[in-house]
Design a binder for these strands. Structure first.
Length: 419
DNA sequence: TCTGGGGTCCTAGGACCC
DNA sequence: TCTGGGGTCCTAGGACCC
């Protein structure tokens, strides 16, 4: 177990990814929007300075005159994924152990010889130069402390993107000043619960009897407390744990009113779920389908879900078939549906040998799916798709300003931006 | 009228994360 | 016109078993 953990994260990661290809955006207020261009999910410092908050609905932001010049983008996850992998590569070439934690954050094992501050500064510079992403780095004796340090580096520009919380005395100083709600693992509800007991700062929380912390917040809260004390409970995870489930759920670009559109949308989600499953080399044994109306618009709420055990598969047509069996009982005429989704759980590694009582030919299915994936990999997602998933897709997601490079390979990107 | 002590599996819901 | 998507872990409670 390392004695020093680091956390590096990309500043306004999605915005920085967009900026990497459009130098003209340097110094400009930039936001990236959620699916359906619904709300702001990433903002540059300039956009934050203009008062744009995380999660602000975009239709309200754009009405404000002073925000007319804000540059905005629909989210382009394939691009951000490429950028994230690039950042990982740069780090993994320079450190023995790196754990990708989220698309824009990596935990680092900093048990390496030499001056840590200098090393972290060098990491920031090389990530900026090669992957074109500005970052902050925080470090300390546990992951939770490294995460806290990273947040401090982000919030205090005078620290030049670096924050060292190795020294208990330095930590104690911050613990007095920082609210417990900013700690990794303490959300809004827990913060409220603690506030009722008069616990507001991190220092207050550490003064709480560990048994009481566990009774109040379960083992999770107990672990947070230990980690904040400097006792490491969360190891670095170099191997990503096999995933437990997978979901494709999406709000419609406009309300779905007809059974025909609903069937198409859910078939399309099932097809996408099957693709993801195959990309992971997994098969699903359980499927859940749900749909619901808009919870925000004051109309009558209707929501329904149904699930079933299925024969293990990652075959697109088979999964569409299962979804089409689950869906009909959920449908009620007369509602304006806002969202639907497919969730696959009980994932198992794909295997090709025949099972007893199997109703499909696995070899044939694998061949067909491999061909389908190869075409879509080469010519873009959705080039080849089952008719059941629709042609016009009037329910599709709105993406008015997608940066036009989502099939681009990272090598081409790097060439395009070579200085 | 009284009525044990474990187990497992499943589902739903809460809380949190990015 | 009108507010994202996709995960994880933990706990409680019911059904069922011996």
């Amino acid at each position: 177990m390392p004695s020093t953990y680091g956390l590096i994260d990309g500043n306004s990661f999605y915005c920085s990814a967009e900026r990497a290809f459009a130098p003209v955006l340097r110094g400009a207020a930039v936001v990236v929007l959620s699916n359906n261009d619904g709300c702001a999910i990433a903002r540059t410092a300039e956009a934050k300075a203009l008062g744009i908050k995380m999660g602000d609905p975009w239709h309200l932001i754009r009405e404000r005159r002073e925000l007319r010049d804000v540059r905005w983008f629909s989210s382009n996850y394939p691009l951000y994924g490429d950028m994230s992998r690039r950042v990982y590569q740069v780090l993994a070439e320079r450190l023995p152990r790196v754990e990708p934690y989220s698309i824009d954050e990596m935990f680092l094992d900093l048990d390496v010889p030499g001056d840590l501050r200098r090393l972290c500064q060098e990491l920031r510079e090389v990530v900026r130069r090669i992957a074109k992403i500005p970052t902050c780095v925080g470090w300390g004796p546990t992951k939770t402390i490294a995460k806290l340090a990273n947040g401090i580096a982000k919030d205090h520009p005078e620290l030049d993107g670096l924050c060292d919380l190795t020294d208990p005395l330095v930590r104690a100083g911050w613990y007095e000043r920082l609210g417990i709600g900013g700690v990794w693992g303490i959300g809004r509800r827990t913060e409220e619960k603690l506030a009722q007991l008069g616990i507001r700062s991190i220092a207050d929380f550490l003064a709480l009897d560990p048994r009481m912390a566990r009774d109040l917040l379960t083992v999770v809260g107990g672990r947070v407390q230990e980690e904040l004390r400097g006792v490491s409970c969360l190891p670095l995870q170099l191997m990503a744990a096999p995933r437990k489930g997978l979901a494709v759920t999406r709000s419609f670009g406009r309300p779905v009113l007809t059974w025909r559109d609903m069937r198409e949308a859910v078939a399309a989600y099932a097809a996408r779920a099957a693709e993801k499953l195959r990309a992971e080399g997994m098969e699903a044994c359980h499927m859940q389908v749900f749909l619901h109306t808009n919870p925000h618009d004051g109309s009558t709420w209707y929501s329904a879900q149904r699930s079933a055990r299925i024969e293990p598969t990652s075959d697109t047509l088979a999964l569409i078939g299962e979804a089409m069996r689950l869906l009909p009982p959920l449908w009620r005429d007369g509602f304006a549906y806002a969202k639907a989704g497919i969730m696959l759980t009980d994932l198992v590694p794909a295997r090709q040998q025949a099972r007893m009582f199997q109703t499909r030919d696995p070899v044939r299915s694998a061949k067909t799916m491999a061909a389908l994936d190869a075409v879509n990999e080469r010519f873009g997602r959705g080039t080849l798709r089952p008719l059941a998933t629709g042609i016009t897709r009037s329910w599709g997601t709105r993406q008015q300003k997608l940066s036009q490079r989502y099939t681009t390979r990272i090598e081409e990107i790097m060439r395009a931006t070579a200085l």
